[in-house]
């Protein structure tokens, strides 16, 4: 059975239609890449799946593990196994990174009927998982993302994913703005977290990410729809010919992105 099923999803932000009929199916163990020019609706899709406020679904449905997802609160989605790596991870002064993550993990464990981890056990787990993305202890003790560089923030997202062990991970432009070393580190972390039970959706603007994380399926999104799907070769072709090959303009200089909350 599919892990994630998106059917004819339409969504609007601030009265503007952004998603205009998305269909997507992700099975356990699969890695899907969603590519597309700026303004195509990629990040809106991620936000709608994670349950961010301000996104109105006007048509269609989303099933996670066969059950409707859209009626759930963000914390319920997280607890059922959906994880969103943010394009712009949020700085939260005054909330310690480790404390935050332990609170999150224990909140999820509570709902699943598992025993909560005490501080010592959690620390062991965090230390082990942090090796995946080479995040050193100093970062773990600072406030959430406060004063982190762009690369550190993205590594912190993958670290959180490693600790929370979601069944579906949506990575929203996790590769954007990273130097090659940081990209390798992040990709290495993601690859280590691939598993037969876990699905992943990589949302990216750049084909470069796919040199390091090899997807099972590639989708090209434009103007709120998936206009083409294929295997890895689709990404290579896109790299070679550019978005204009599909008759698309890269919206970098075009209209501002619809409704993306940027801090």
């Amino acid at each position: 059975m599919a892990l994630l099923t998106v059917r004819n999803l339409h969504a609007r932000v601030a009265g503007k239609d952004i998603l205009k009929g998305i269909d997507l199916e992700v099975r356990p163990g699969e890695v899907h890449a969603i590519m597309g020019p700026n303004g195509s609706g990629k990040s809106t899709l991620a936000s709608v799946l994670a349950g961010r406020d301000g996104y109105e679904v006007t048509q269609g449905e989303v099933l996670f593990d066969g059950k409707p997802l859209l009626g759930l609160s963000p914390e319920e989605r997280a607890t059922s196994g959906v994880f969103l790596a943010f394009q712009y991870p949020v700085e939260i002064p005054g909330v310690g990174n480790l404390h935050f993550l332990r609170t999150a993990l224990n909140a999820q464990r509570r709902v699943r009927g598992l025993e909560e981890l005490d501080a010592m056990d959690f620390l062991q787990l965090a230390k082990e998982k942090s090796k995946l993305v080479q995040l050193d202890a100093a970062f773990m003790n600072r406030s959430v993302n406060e004063g982190f560089s762009g690369g550190e923030k993205k590594r912190n997202e993958i670290f959180q994913m490693a600790v929370l062990e979601p069944r579906l991970a949506i990575l929203d432009e996790t590769d954007s703005g990273l130097d090659i070393d940081a990209l390798r580190t992040v990709a290495g972390g993601v690859n280590a977290l691939r598993s037969p039970e876990r699905g992943m959706v990589l949302i990216t603007h750049y084909q470069r990410l796919l040199d390091y994380i090899v997807p099972d399926k590639v989708h090209v999104m434009a103007a709120g729809r998936i206009i083409r799907s294929g295997g890895r070769e689709l990404a290579l072709e896109l790299e070679e010919k550019g978005y204009s090959w599909l008759g698309l303009q890269d919206g970098k200089t075009a209209a501002p992105k619809g409704g993306e909350a940027r801090r």
Partner: peptide, 10 residues
């Protein structure tokens, strides 16, 4: 939203 997206109740 960031905190809730990690499973922390509102």
């Amino acid at each position: 939203f960031y905190l809730r997206s990690r499973g922390i109740p509102r």
